[in-house]
Every structure is written in C-alpha cells, then in structure tokens.
C-alpha cells in the first residue's frame, strides 16, 4: 500500500515535469502581459521615457472614452464587423447547405471556396489593391454588369467605398472557411432524418428551415461569435490600404488605433486602456456564446 502511494507520488511529479514548461510559458507570455496591460492602463506610461510611470487612476479611460478618435475607430470597427458579419454568415450558410446536397464534387467545391483562406491576409489585401485600381478589374466588372463604361467607383479613395472594399476582401477571404464549419456541422445530422422528411414530401426549403437550421443551432451560434471576434481583430487589410494611400479615418479599426497610439504616439498607458476595452467587448461576446450554446443544449 505504502509502495503504491510512493509510486503515485513519483508519477504525480512526472505529471508536473511534463506540464511545467507549458505553465512557465503561459505565465510569462499570457498571464503576466494581461496583468501588466491592466495595470499599465491606469498609468501615464510612455514608450520612450526616462521618468517612472505614475498612477493616474481612470484618467486614460476617461480620456479615451471622451475622445473623438476612439469613437471614430469604435464606429469603424462596428461598421466593418457588422458589414462583414451579415454576408459571411448568410453566404457560408447557403453555400454549405448547397454543398451538402451535392453527392460528388463535395471536396473540390470545398477546396475551391476555402483556397483564399490559405493566403496571408496581406497577400489577399494586395491582390484586391490592384483589383480596386481605378482602371482595374473591379470597375471593369461592375461597368460591364451595369453597362456604365468608364465609371470609377473610387474603391480606395472614397470614405464609404474604402469601408466596403475592406469588407469585400474579408468576405472573399473567409467565406470558404466558415462554409467548411457549417458543412461539418451539417454532416452531423443523421441521413435518416432528411430521408424521412423527403419521404414525407418535405421540399428543399422546408427541410432547410425545419430540419437543418434548428439542428445546427450550436454551430450557427459558434460561427456567429467566431466571425464577430475575428472581425474585431482585423488589422492587415486596413493597414495595407492605409499605407497604400486610402483615407485613414473610415477604416482605422480598433487594432490599428491601438497600434498607432502605442507606436506612433508612444502613449502606452492610453493604448493599454484601449486594448482593455477591446478585451472587455470580446469577453462579452465569448460569454454570450457560452450562454447561447449552453441554452442550445438544454433545448435539445
């Protein structure tokens, strides 16, 4: 008996040996920085300064929340997130439902839709930068479609169009990714359910709205929150477009604003306050997701 517990103790120590390097890593590169960001958000810390940072209470938060720039970037982020969310969710749901109904060609179709997700975000933005050229493909395609030769839609010059352009890049890049998630979710629905409905004479629409949609509710909730969280973290497309000369204001999303506040204005305290606010919104979203998915389980 004693021997056994001694062996147990030895085994337990080995457990710690395997886990320790990881715990050290997460302490240093996740826990310490988040605590640090939290503390820094209450100081007037500057990036290049010899003076020790002073505790300033809620001053950063007050200043951030009452500044025009912050609300401008909050608006830019919201416009982008909502603008990308709606088409991403609807299109990926539609594509997934149609792909599932295909018998052959499922995999090539998925691979084709997914392929832009393989690219780096910057490469995706770079391709569209050239497509959005005044004489580029985007104008040509729309002018051919509407029979309006020679019209320039100012994709990267106009404020609203710049917002639309970043959304187009994002939807193009990620629609296949979320389609795959829906295909996986729909794959879990037993064939028998659909076949029974088919025998009962339910048409494709009826099957989609009365069977597929209710049964993939957990996936839908998950994908919705994933899209929103991902959209709030968008950076590369906006950064590249701004560097290439697009107007900053309408597409200065929160991540870009944090980056500029820290690296251009060197105001680390204020940047930390902004990043804590972003964190709070994302936590709220994750919490909603958790609640919604739990609720889904209860309903089933």
């Amino acid at each position: 008996m004693k021997r056994a517990s001694g062996m147990e103790g030895k085994r337990a120590r080995w457990g710690w040996v395997f886990v320790a390097p990881g715990l050290l890593f997460f302490s240093l590169f996740s826990w310490y920085p988040i605590v640090n960001a939290f503390v820094t958000s209450f100081t007037n810390r500057k990036l290049i300064s010899l003076k020790a940072p002073k505790f300033v209470g809620l001053q950063n938060y007050v200043r951030v929340l009452s500044s025009e720039d912050f609300w401008n970037s909050a608006r830019a982020t919201a416009v982008f997130a909502v603008g990308a969310f709606v088409p991403l969710l609807l299109l990926s749901l539609l594509f997934a439902a149609l792909i599932v109904s295909l018998r052959g060609w499922k995999r090539p179709a998925q691979m084709a839709l997914y392929s832009p997700a393989v690219l780096s975000s910057v490469v995706a933005a770079l391709i569209w930068l050239v497509v959005f050229d005044p004489r580029g493909l985007a104008n040509q395609a729309l002018n051919a479609l509407f029979g309006t030769p020679g019209i320039d839609r100012r994709w990267l010059a106009d404020a609203t169009m710049a917002q639309i352009s970043t959304i187009v890049v994002y939807v193009w890049k990620y629609v296949g990714y979320f389609t795959i998630l829906f295909v996986t979710g729909m794959g879990k629905i037993p064939d028998a359910v659909n076949e029974a409905a088919l025998i009962d004479g339910a048409g494709p629409f009826r099957r989609f709205f009365s069977i597929t949609l209710p049964l993939i509710r957990p996936t839908t909730v998950l994908v919705s929150v994933m899209i929103l969280i991902q959209c709030m973290k968008t950076f590369s497309t906006q950064y590249l477009f701004v560097q290439a000369g697009a107007p900053t204001g309408p597409i200065e999303v929160m991540t870009l604003a944090i980056y500029n506040t820290a690296m251009r204005d060197l105001a680390i305290g204020r940047a930390s306050a902004m990043s804590m606010l972003l964190f709070a919104v994302m936590l709220l979203l994750s919490w909603l997701q958790l609640r919604a998915s739990r609720g889904g389980e209860d309903a089933l």
Binding site: S30, Y32, P33, A37, S272
Partner: peptide
Amino acid sequence: MIPFETVMVPL
C-alpha cells in the same frame, strides 16, 4: 480568451 492585440504592448 486573451486576444493578442490586448497583450502585444506588454509583450
């Protein structure tokens, strides 16, 4: 749960 954007400055 921690987004990279929140911890990038301390990192």
